[in-house]
């Protein structure tokens, strides 16, 4: 074999190898990290909750995976699974909305862009909503609004902590003003949950934009975000176009929001479940709500008595 042949052979085997790799990526056996480019066995990645083992990049997770990550095995009870979208405006852009819906339903096996239900999170009961970016970019139309409202109302009636994992490009334009109004509707349901002194924690994941940011994503009693998620109101491109200037790289990231005071903490996905459990548990009433009622009407309580009582 001449040196020339050796090179030719090597090239051939390299291309074959590459093709083989690409096929395996396509088959889903391997996943390439979009941030550092390192290939990882998809199964290993899944064990690590889709967080890159090399660079800690948080890859996108679909709603099923997210529920598996957060909810104790065999405790998930879905709510309102059958609610499905219609085409109220008879909307058609380059493609009819009806066709788009059918396409995404086939691809994701979901009826729309959110799953809701109840389950245990480290043994603590929660009402959980998970948006799915795979379904039309997680956009919020009537179904997302209705399902989240029903979830929050259920949480209010059953005295449950509500958690919503956000992942959305914003309102679903194909449902026009009906979509915009879902922002108000969900915020109203959250107002009632809040009046009942119950805990609501949104978890902001990549990306959380537009009408979702301008409603339930920003209304948490506490707000958590995954590292390096894009979070904002107006899209980056829109701002660049109106201002005609380049924006800083960290603009509208979780880190940027933390710095400006709009999220409570950035939590790695690896610690998300544990952190949520810690927060829920720390918000459980520690003393009976009626404690102190017996003292009412006797506010001129004697200091000595109090001290004696304490020593006992």
């Amino acid at each position: 074999m001449s040196l020339f042949d050796w090179f030719a052979n090597r090239e051939k085997s390299e291309t074959a190898n590459q093709q083989h790799q690409e096929r395996e990526i396509a088959d889903g056996l391997w996943t390439k990290c979009p941030s550092c480019g390192v290939l990882a066995y998809t199964k290993d990645l899944q064990v690590n909750q889709m967080v890159c083992l090399e660079c800690d990049h948080h890859l996108g997770v679909d709603s099923n995976e997210r529920i598996r990550q957060l909810i104790d095995a065999k405790t998930w009870k879905p709510l309102n699974e059958n609610i499905q979208p219609v085409d109220p405006l008879n909307f058609r852009d380059r493609k009819p909305y009806k066709d788009r819906l059918r396409e995404y339903q086939g691809k994701t096996k979901l009826k729309d862009a959110v799953q809701t239900g109840t389950g245990l999170l480290d043994g603590l009961p929660v009402a959980l909503g998970v948006m799915d970016f795979q379904f039309m970019g997680g956009s919020m139309g009537s179904v997302v609004g209705e399902k989240l409202c029903r979830l929050i109302e259920y949480g209010t009636n059953e005295c449950l902590t509500v958690i919503i994992v956000c992942a959305s490009g914003g309102a679903r334009m194909q449902e026009g003003m009906l979509s915009l109004m879902q922002m108000a509707k969900i915020s109203g349901a959250l107002e009632r949950h809040r009046q009942a002194r119950l805990l609501y924690i949104p978890v902001l994941t990549h990306p959380t934009m537009g009408g979702v940011t301008a409603s339930f994503a920003m209304l948490g009693d506490l707000i958590l975000a995954e590292p390096k998620a894009a979070i904002g109101f107006a899209g980056r491109r829109v701002i660049e176009q109106t201002l005609r200037e380049k924006l800083p790289d960290d603009f509208q990231t979780s880190e940027y929001l933390l710095q400006h005071g709009f999220v409570d903490a950035i939590v790695s996905r690896i610690h998300l479940k544990r952190t949520l459990a810690q927060l829920i548990s720390i918000h459980q009433p520690f003393y009976p709500i009626n404690a102190g009622v017996a003292l009412e009407g006797n506010l001129s309580m004697n200091h000595e008595q109090f001290v004696v009582h304490k020593e006992n």
Binding site: A214, M218, F233, A234, I239, T242, F251, Q252, H260
Partner: peptide, 16 residues
């Protein structure tokens, strides 16, 4: 839709 509006929390202000 501007840099300062995002910095000051346009989304939070509307949501609230």
């Amino acid at each position: 839709a501007g840099v300062e509006a995002e910095e000051l929390g346009q989304g939070e202000a509307i949501a609230y």
